[in-house]
């Protein structure tokens, strides 16, 4: 067991346990915090897989941005609605059916896939751990890929984000009548 492995299991356990909290906690805030930890654990796993850029972006975007805003929204709307942020259990049968089905499907996929024969895994197995050159930064290669082969996708994503931004600005803008109060918004 080297440090790498310990760390892998630590992050794995963190991810799974936090995910369990997300599912089982009836307090929405606790669930949100669990989600935060889950995403953090996933970021750790990315880092262990030498995807440093991805790991940091994961924290930056999901932990720092999305989950925070999610919690923010829950806190504000909860105060407005005056109810405790709690979830209930609904649709037990359907939920159980879907969950079991998905679980079975995943297990089947995992056991039917022959990982050892996948090309990149096979390649990786041939590299000698000691003599291989250290994995450099992924930033450069990611950048080149983004403005190279995936330029169109990159631009589409940018367009979607711009539209979202304009939409947010439209929702938040002052209404046209002079002196009118700004439109009421939730979060």
């Amino acid at each position: 067991m080297d440090y790498y492995r310990i760390a892998f299991y630590l992050f794995g356990a963190l991810t799974v346990l936090a995910a369990v909290v997300v599912v089982w906690s009836r307090n929405l805030i606790h669930a949100g915090m669990g989600l935060l930890l889950t995403l953090f654990g996933v970021a750790g796993l990315y880092a262990l897989a030498a995807a440093d850029f991805l790991a940091v972006v994961q924290i930056l975007v999901y932990v720092g941005g999305i989950v925070i805003l999610l919690l923010f929204g829950i806190m504000l709307t909860q105060r407005i609605a005056g109810r405790a942020p709690r979830t209930g259990v609904v649709n037990r049968t359907v939920g159980a059916l879907i969950a079991t089905g998905l679980f079975v499907l995943f297990v089947m996929v995992i056991f039917s896939a022959r990982f050892a024969e996948l090309p990149w895994i096979a390649q990786g197995r041939m590299i000698d751990r000691e003599s291989a050159p250290p994995v450099g930064s992924t930033v450069e290669r990611l950048g080149q890929l983004l403005v190279g082969p995936y330029l169109l996708l990159f631009e589409v994503a940018a367009l979607v984000l711009t539209v979202a931004l304009i939409g947010a600005a439209y929702l938040a803008r002052r209404s046209r009548q002079e002196g009118a109060r700004p439109r009421r918004m939730i979060s």
């Binding site: 440093d52 850029f53 940091v56 930056l60 720092g64 450099g136 930064s137």
Partner: peptide, 25 residues
Amino acid sequence: NLNVGVLFITAFAAFEVAGLLLAGW
């Protein structure tokens, strides 16, 4: 000596926000 040091610090600044939110709530 991280290759993504700049982003790293920015990312963890966001983590601080999570802490503040926890404290407030």
